[in-house]
Nucleic acid binder design. Sequence first.
DNA 1: CTTGACCTTGACGTAAGGGCAGGGGTTCTA
DNA 2: TAGAACCCCTGCCCTTACGTCAAGGTCAAG
Lengths: 249, 249
Amino acid sequence: MLLIGEIAKLAGVTPRTVRHYHRIGLLAEPERNSSGYRSYGLSALSRLLQIRKLTALGMGLSEVTDALAETDTGAVDVKEILVELDAELADGEADIQRRRAVIARLLEDGDDPTLSPELAAAVRGLELPPREIGMLRAAEVALPEFVDPYLTGAGQDSPWQIWDQKLAALADAEANDPRVGEIAGELYAMLPELLPADVPAELTADQTATVAATARFGQMMLSDMSPGQRRVFELLVEYGRREPEKWGR
Amino acid sequence: MLLIGEIAKLAGVTPRTVRHYHRIGLLAEPERNSSGYRSYGLSALSRLLQIRKLTALGMGLSEVTDALAETDTGAVDVKEILVELDAELADGEADIQRRRAVIARLLEDGDDPTLSPELAAAVRGLELPPREIGMLRAAEVALPEFVDPYLTGAGQDSPWQIWDQKLAALADAEANDPRVGEIAGELYAMLPELLPADVPAELTADQTATVAATARFGQMMLSDMSPGQRRVFELLVEYGRREPEKWGR
DNA sequence: CTTGACCTTGACGTAAGGGCAGGGGTTCTA
DNA sequence: TAGAACCCCTGCCCTTACGTCAAGGTCAAG
């Protein structure tokens, strides 16, 4: 006749755990003594130990319920359960190993863990400000057609790099900043060499395809730009409208 | 300007996840458009991607919060975090490997996964009924001084085995079963060879030490016994009382 | 008689979202 | 012009396997 604390200690669990098993029906409620305390016999302890052995292997409590129900009825599908469980564990193990491999590589290279390997390699040693890196990280998935050339062909002196730097100069500029017009002009002149070769078809078919692509790019970055930078994009679109023959087909 | 579903898809998560990150303060709430929809920019996407990269390594969201706060303030303790995380993952990996080793052994031996290796080896090939095995499983942790000899020295013909079999014959017996007296007498005669050599001191010091030890054993098993078996234990105690000179010091 | 160590039930918290209800928005299509 | 199909909003309950109080009853010892 064991109290809940005693049976729990024998099984290496807390009384709370035993009560939990009662509540979910995994372990039958035992008799109570005259004080209302639960009073356990050896068969309850045996059941509790069975449960613990299986949970220690990594089974969930509902799986344990099933497994014990099967063994109680004599069905010997326990092997099947174990094989299945082992497969799950193998998955988990492979998962952990993948993560650890990534971590090992990060520790070796000293890269920012929040960058893709490609982007990390591209910006390594470039000392870009965090804000620029953040834009690249986002643009890599949101605007891959703009960033991929930057990653593959580009290094220190790519047009994109220069574009970035010119625009970054206006990071804190107001819309009426005197440099806005000048920089807009420079960027406008750079557009032809900057725009990707493989712009989607529906955009190239458009009359002002490149301007539209640029606008899309700008559109997505607008929320993270200074007023001066937004003004630059407005100007770019305006310039494009003035030369439809240059951009249209 | 991305809707929540768009940014979620770009980051490979669900909108629910993004809202979750808002609620716990991991991702700042963005502006709303005229319809009350959240409207995200590239910097939000960047932040979301950072979060995902770190959770993919196995960090919890609170750890991610800390890690990103540190990188935002320029502190480069990310390496430290990664090392710590790797240690945790290594623990988890070792854990899984232990479990898989146990499972592999179980599958090879075909043992009951809910038995200790020692007990499984002891009962292997013995074809004990499940009820007996259950009692052994429980007794192994509750009454080790009674079971250990059974495990180490005992095989098919140990006194314990015989005791078990005699008692098991009354598994469904009522208290007035005619076999009760006979079996009680046999078991009483077996007591000297059955009782463990290393009974705890406070019990050997007692005048009726062995009877008390037996009573303790019986006490714990009572709740799982048939009325006939309980009667046997009552008789054993009675017999012991009749021969105090035999059991006393 | 009090203290301390038990026991009881009940209710809330955890991590990281999943799922549903009830209601509104936008856009395409018949 | 009205559905249909999808998107969005908030709020609430659900999940695992218990941990952690909280408020109160029980029991043996000093």
